[in-house]
Structure formats: C-alpha cells, structure tokens
C-alpha cells in the first residue's frame, strides 16, 4: 500500500483532532482551565448539524445548515460559560476540570435522550465519492476536512492577529488581571472564547460525521485531542493543530507498520515521549509570572 494513501487519511483525521485540540487550548489560554467536555461539544455540534441538514429532520441545504449549527453551538457555549462556568470564577482549576467532566456526561446523556444511541450518519453531499491523484484515492470528505481546517485556522489566525477582539482575547489569555486593568472586559471575553471554542468543536464534529457515523459516545475522541494539545504544548494554537496532525498521521502508520496490538498505544507513547523530552510540548509558550 502506498504510504501516501496512509498519509491522506492521517492528515484528514489529524485535522479533526487538531480542531478539537484548538478548542482545548483556546479555553486553557483564556481561563487556565481544561474543558474536558470539548469532545462532547464536538459530538453535540455534529448532532445539531445533522438535525438541520438531514432529510428526516429539517432538510436545510448543507452549507447553510452547517453555518447555522456553528452559530447555535457558539451561542450554546457562550451561555454555558455565562450560566455555569462563570460561577466557578476564582475557584481552584480542578473545580472547573471536574465540572467539565460532569458536563461531558450530561451532554452525552442529553444527546442520547434526543437523538438516541444508534450511530447516525450526516447526509453529507459528497459522501462515498472520491478522486485519484496518481495511485492514491482521496475521498471528497477527506479533501473537505483538510480544506475546511485550512480555512478555519487561517481565519482564526487573522482574527487573533488583526481584530480588536482577537487582540483583547490574546491579552486576556496572557494575563487576566493586567488585561482587566487595561479595560478589557475579561469575563465577557471568557464567554466569547467559549463561544469560539464551541464553534470550532462543531466544525470538527461535522468533519468527523462526514467521514463515518456519530453517536453520543463520539465525544470520547476528546481524549485523543487532549493528547494532541499536550504534544503541541498546551498554550499554543499552532501547536494544537500540529499535535493533532502528528497523532492523526501516527495512527495509520502504526496500524500499518507496527505489530497488531501495539498500534493503539502509539499516540500516547508519542505523548509520553514528548513530555519526557520537551515537558512543555513541541510548541511551548512558557511564561513565568512574577509576584
């Protein structure tokens, strides 16, 4: 089998891990807490899109349905922060961690109650179709995943580098107190970061659903994305994407080249190796806070 064939699938999966990892990092940078429900937001985004797009539900055209679901997930995540997470402002970080783990359970339960536990497929217009580049078969869904990830990360880059709000978010993530003294509405910024993170997760969910099927336990993929964020360096947005790509590529390579049974531990072995050799991740941004 052509290794480039493995590479195509790996990059497409890696993009999905990378987008979920981006969500982890966005929230971590803004609030210094880890949102362990990030994978479940991805799952929820996929189900919301399915509801808008699938024929048996609302039957919207794919692109408007996709964008509408992103907006819904943005509002949902904003409210999640505003109504629940903000109550823990000033509490130890582990409180938010525990809360988000609980949120994950609740979201899985809600998804199961609304959409059932059977795996369901998103009616993706290009499902099952592919094109050839030499001997390599590229699914349109894989091309879609890679393209959307490239566009989204470029937009995120421009947003953080060029817009007032993006710069305010960066400032807030570097030092909340200093940002607050500079007149940045830190609490509102935190809600907006959650909204952005929810929208990114919903894009990842749609990309995941386009490649197969979804069920309420799909969100458990978040664990792998967490490993990706750790590999990239938990504070770095490009690192999160790179970490996702590394895991995405390693998985099929390990399945193909490693003996059966060992391939499953490959992503976590890489994470361990990175933590030993570069404890702050490959793209670490380490700052010392002086008191």
């Amino acid at each position: 089998m052509d290794p480039f064939q493995l590479l195509v699938g790996g990059i497409a999966n890696g993009c999905i891990y990378g987008l979920v990892a981006l969500g982890f990092v966005l929230i971590y940078k803004a609030t210094e807490a880890v949102n362990f429900a990030q994978g479940d937001l991805m799952m929820l985004g996929a189900f919301v899109t399915m509801t808008f797009v699938n024929q048996e539900w609302w039957d919207f055209p794919f692109i408007p349905g996709f964008i509408l679901a992103m907006l819904v997930m943005g509002v949902f995540s904003y409210l999640l922060e505003f109504v629940i997470i903000r109550r823990l402002f000033g509490q130890p970080q582990f409180a938010v961690v525990i809360l988000t783990i609980a949120l994950g359970f609740i979201l899985r339960f809600i998804a199961g109650a609304i959409w059932g536990h059977d795996p369901q497929s998103l009616e993706f217009p290009l499902a099952g179709e592919s094109f050839h580049i030499g001997s390599i078969v590229v699914g349109y869904d894989e091309a879609f995943v890679i393209l959307v990830t490239a566009v989204l990360t470029s937009l995120l880059y421009l947003f953080f580098a060029r817009t007032r709000l993006g710069i305010a978010m960066q400032a807030s993530s570097q030092n909340q107190l200093a940002a607050y003294y500079m007149g940045i509405p830190v609490k509102r910024i935190s809600s907006l970061i959650w909204a952005l993170s929810g929208m990114t997760a919903s894009v990842a969910g749609v990309l995941f659903a386009a490649k197969g099927a979804i069920d309420p336990s799909t969100g458990l993929l978040g664990i792998k994305a967490f490993a990706a964020a750790v590999i990239g360096g938990f504070g770095s947005l490009p690192g999160a994407l790179a970490g996702g790509l590394i895991i995405g590529i390693i998985e099929p390579m390990a399945q193909f080249f490693a003996p059966s049974g060992y391939s499953q531990i490959a992503p976590y072995a890489v994470m361990l190796l990175v933590l030993i050799l570069r404890p702050n991740g490959l793209f670490s941004q380490v700052f010392q806070k002086k008191v």
Partner: peptide, 21 residues
C-alpha cells in the same frame, strides 16, 4: 492476517491497508 482495535477507535486506514497488503 489480523488487526486489533480499541472499542472507540475512529481511524482504520492503516489497519485496512495492512489487511489489503
């Protein structure tokens, strides 16, 4: 040949490549 997987695995490209080979 055979390949092993985790219950929540989501990527089978490498495994299928191995079996095809």
């Amino acid at each position: 040949a055979e390949t092993t997987h985790k219950p929540d695995e989501s990527d089978y490209v490498g495994a299928l490549g191995k079996l095809k080979e």
